[in-house]
């Protein structure tokens, strides 16, 4: 079960830390408990370095999270990735979501993106 901490900071940012296993087994619970009603501030920081294990459901959750954040017009940064997520991201060539955090339009518009 993943450990999810959402800290609203005084400098108008939200810090979301996810540690442990982010997989299908707890995806539903995590989403319902933490993300469904999430409200973020102007800036969002993702600390994902302590994710020990992740699967597609987990990654979907992250992507959904990022969409939520974008829809609230918040800019986000991924501060740390961790090994599990890096591996997955490399395999699926998803790095742009986790590394190239500046370009959020791809997430919100839903259009076909040309490969990099």
């Amino acid at each position: 079960m993943a450990e999810i901490k959402v800290i609203q900071k005084r400098d108008n940012s939200t810090e979301i830390t996810i540690s442990g296993e982010l997989t299908i087994y707890c995806a539903m619970e995590a989403f319902q408990q933490h993300f469904q009603q999430l409200k973020v501030k102007e800036k969002t920081l993702f600390k994902l370095g302590n994710i020990s294990e992740i699967d597609t459901a987990g990654v979907q959750l992250l992507v959904m999270l990022m969409k939520i954040v974008s829809e609230q017009s918040s800019s986000y940064r991924v501060v740390s990735l961790g090994e599990a997520l890096t591996d997955y991201s490399n395999l699926f060539q998803l790095n742009r979501y986790f590394v190239d955090f500046a370009d959020i339009s791809a997430l919100t518009s839903g259009s076909e993106e040309d490969k990099s």
Partner: peptide, 25 residues
């Protein structure tokens, strides 16, 4: 060797309809 893989997220729903156990990719 997977030369290229494109993960398409077109099918992601709105937050309210998101089912964490469904596949959208």
């Amino acid at each position: 060797e997977i030369k290229h893989i494109e993960t398409i997220i077109d099918n992601f729903p709105q937050v309210d309809n998101f089912d964490a156990e469904s596949l959208y990719f």
